[in-house]
Design a protein around this nucleic acid. Sequence first.
DNA 1: TTTCGTTATGTGATATTATTACATTAGTCA
DNA 2: TGACTAATGTAATAATATCACATAACGAAA
Lengths: 134, 134
Amino acid sequence: MTPTQELTKNQSLVFNALSRADGPLSAYTILDQLRDEGFRAPLQVYRALDKLLDYGMIHRLESINAFVACAHPHSHSHSHGMIAFAICEKCGQVSEFSDDVITGRVREWTTSNGFKQSKTTIEIRGVCANCGAA
Amino acid sequence: MTPTQELTKNQSLVFNALSRADGPLSAYTILDQLRDEGFRAPLQVYRALDKLLDYGMIHRLESINAFVACAHPHSHSHSHGMIAFAICEKCGQVSEFSDDVITGRVREWTTSNGFKQSKTTIEIRGVCANCGAA
DNA sequence: TTTCGTTATGTGATATTATTACATTAGTCA
DNA sequence: TGACTAATGTAATAATATCACATAACGAAA
């Protein structure tokens, strides 16, 4: 896990933008937030996002084309398991959890089918408890 | 499950294109394949795709922005469970399976967190047995 | 410290995916 | 018929992501 201090300028700016946000941000939203810091092109954002994904500091939510800071940056509980995301379609809040049973079942399938998995996406769309209460 | 016969002209064209294909297709690939049939605009494809998704005849693969015909159209084995997809990044082949244990664990999480799920995506990216053997 | 290779950055153009807005046509059914 | 709904056609545009190429910053090794 690469600590924040080793990030480059652009990587830090993008990571801080995601950390400040209370939900996922699109690449272009990040770009707009960082115009004042000198950002001018999408690639500046995408390149930083790629590195932050490499470092495991952020996640990409495939089903909504957006990015979030990792909710458990200092925990290794996720390091051996797949991470699932519950995404509220009302408020945008994202909950992150990992489940060893799910991880195990997926591994069983891949192993018995000779499939070498590189990345697994589990995203639950719906309405969170807060928004559902209304 | 709406049978093919009840599909409109555009829906049939799109569904047949996906059925013919041996892997997922992007909306614009479908559009190109259907130019000879009179398709001229993306919306003709997207509208048909939306309906076919409604009818459960096709799936959308969120992680690669593509669509596939449902692999088990005549089976109800999936109707109560989540469907997982294993997507080969070499050859593009997609395997579809459902797992009651995974479905159960996801439901446990959502129930105990008061989260009302509407759609769940499980996509495994990697290399299939055939391609890995090379 | 200079040189070289690597990594990061800046910028414009372009590719890819998806939606909005509005007009028209085709069925359905009271 | 008339009125309603679903489906279609078309142009324009929005949103997301990458390519190509130039420049700068950095680190290791001579």
